[in-house]
């Protein structure tokens, strides 16, 4: 998972991971914004605009104009995630959609497992709806250690994907890698 290529067709791209995945999503949003409109749906309070600006400044003389291409909205509970996707789906969306941390609110202890499952199924229904008009990129984090059973949510999302990247945990690599000695 060195880089996420810019999407070429209306496919669902899923990226599973922590801060590395987040960084890549932010970079991706910036690059997409250079080409035209982008929708950023932030489901985990993760879409910090400042790294996007920094990336844009490397790529263009006019980061403000590119930034204005990004339409963003946030959802803080899984009910809001569902409502946000439904609302976005009801518009004629033709630009790429980048969804940050889709499952964050599904890991909330106040949400019952079966309720989460039901809401996620409905949310993924809307994601499929979005694919009719545009490519969709989704990032998800693995569940916190308190809810290992919610890894099933991640699998559910991955099962929908046309392409799925999984960020490797450093220890899980299993292969000895020579790191830099001095950084």
């Amino acid at each position: 998972m060195d880089a996420i290529r810019l999407p070429t067709s209306n496919q669902l791209y899923v990226i599973v991971g922590g801060s590395g995945a987040l960084q890549r999503m932010l970079t991706l949003a910036a690059r997409l914004a250079l080409r035209g409109g982008v929708w950023v749906l932030d489901c985990g309070n993760r879409a910090n605009p400042l790294p996007v600006v920094r990336e844009l400044r490397r790529l263009t003389m006019d980061p403000v104009r590119a930034l204005a291409n990004i339409q963003t909205a946030r959802a803080f509970t899984c009910y809001q995630v569902l409502a946000l996707l439904e609302q976005t789906c009801s518009r004629p969306v033709r630009e790429p959609v980048v969804i940050f941390d889709l499952l964050a609110s599904f890991y909330d202890e106040s949400v019952r497992y079966d309720e989460g499952q039901r809401l996620l199924a409905a949310a993924l229904g809307h994601v499929r709806g979005l694919l009719a008009g545009a490519p969709v990129m989704v990032s998800v984090r693995p569940p916190p250690t308190d809810f290992p059973e919610r890894a099933a949510f991640v699998q559910r999302v991955c099962a929908e994907a046309d392409q799925c990247w999984v960020e490797e945990a450093p220890s899980a690599a299993g292969v000895y890698q020579q790191g830099s000695l001095w950084t």
Partner: peptide, 8 residues
Amino acid sequence: MGRTLPSI
């Protein structure tokens, strides 16, 4: 509600 932008 947590803010998305980091504080100054």
